[in-house]
Design a protein around this nucleic acid. Structure first.
Ligand SMILES: [Mn+2]
Ligand SMILES: [Mn+2]
Ligand SMILES: [Mn+2]
Ligand SMILES: [Mn+2]
Lengths: 215, 215
DNA sequence: TTAATAAGTTAGATTAATCTAACTATTATT
DNA sequence: AATAATAGTTAGATTAATCTAACTTATTAA
């Protein structure tokens, strides 16, 4: 069994490795806000446990075993977020910190029950995929709104960041997952977009558009 | 803020002190399954933090502050148990181990939401009172079934132990909180009782009757 | 291609939580 | 009252997770 701390390292390893398939001690250190020597020791430990492949001065890679265990923690995190939103009435901007703690609970029955009550959801409240019970993730390929072109009609499918501030910003403008957007124009100067949805028109900065994934 | 470990000591202190208002290092050691020297160090630490009054070789007593913090953890435990039973469909014999972990979650909003969804329950699934947000507990004085007399008609209000085995034993006999019982006879030899309820008659041993609280 | 910067490692210290072994104090039994 | 048993304490070790300081390797920029 992995400790609470080890679980947090596994999760960070998984998330930081999604693009390159590997990550660095430095990136982990920044992401977890834990100093590099501490991360270094933990990599040795996780390597001992067969959860990562680690050699001095090289990037760190999760093993298959490590990947699966990480995915199962992320599964618990995302099921929890979904449960909090769908069954308890929280907003999508309120659930991350609670899920960050609940994800460490050891009780298959607890998460199986959530899964059942939610009717086996495939994505969490931010549009991120929920790994299945075997740790398998089905990635949908969404496009950042910023890469769309004038005139396109798209549906908001996910957000790539779920900070409180950003989600509240979206709430304030009535932007939620599933909403249909039409791109009216794109400002060549700063890349901001004028989009219409729900019978209104808003201008969204490039920084925002990059974080909105659409289908 | 208290650590996960400290919270478990506080809770044990509270529970073990309910009759005498104080408890011993030995009782804590047994209850927590932690060796006495470890408990001894922790009492010094909690004393430093102003949560217990502790002097060498004397029983340990929670301070008012300690009592309140303990009650608030117990509140989270019992709200969680109630939520698991009422909102998630668990049986009263399944919830203790999950609540034992969930009670340590730091998120007032999470427990406030449970409380609200449960419509501010006063007792948990085992009939134990749920402390209010200020740590106040309203104790109802129930009587052990074993102290009742022949012919009495009573209602099952709480159980004093919530082990898996015991609760499954009650489940198997259709005994649940709120059920009406009539005492048909008491066996003078071993104190076992013949009770009727829900159109049937069962014989319950003294050991069982002592653990059933009735009103 | 050297020098500077960034990334990574090693060594050694610290804190929290636990243990065992050995000792001391209190309580119960003869 | 003496002895045995139980409860409690002290001392010292261990493990997990963290840190700072100092050093090394790798990468980037002159
Ligand atoms: Mn989250
Ligand atoms: Mn999420
Ligand atoms: Mn319980
Ligand atoms: Mn209970």
């Amino acid at each position: 069994m992995n400790s609470y701390t080890e679980e947090n390292y596994l999760k960070a390893l998984f998330i930081l490795s999604t693009e390159a398939g590997e990550t660095t001690v430095n990136a982990l250190s920044k992401s977890l806000e834990i100093k590099m020597p501490t991360v270094n020791s933990m990599m040795k430990k996780l390597s001992e446990k067969g959860l990562v492949n680690y050699e001095s001065y090289k990037p760190v890679k999760l093993t298959e075993k490590g990947k699966k265990e990480a995915a199962l923690i992320i599964r618990k995190h995302r099921l929890t977020e979904m449960f909090l939103v769908e069954k308890m009435g929280f907003g999508w901007e309120q659930v991350h910190d609670i899920a960050e703690q609940v994800e460490h609970i050891k009780s298959p029955a607890f998460f199986d029950k959530m899964d059942e009550l939610l009717a086996y959801p495939k994505v969490d409240p931010h549009g991120s995929p929920i790994p299945d019970k075997h740790g398998k993730i089905v990635w949908k390929k969404y496009t950042p709104l910023s890469e769309c072109i004038k005139g396109q009609a798209v549906v908001l499918a996910a957000v790539t960041h779920s900070s409180d501030d950003f989600l509240k910003f979206l709430n304030a403008r009535g932007l939620h997952l599933g909403i249909s957007l039409k791109i009216k124009s794109i400002e060549p100067f700063d890349g901001s977009m004028v989009v219409s949805y729900a019978k209104k028109t808003e201008t969204l900065s490039l920084v925002v558009c990059e974080k909105l994934l659409v289908a």
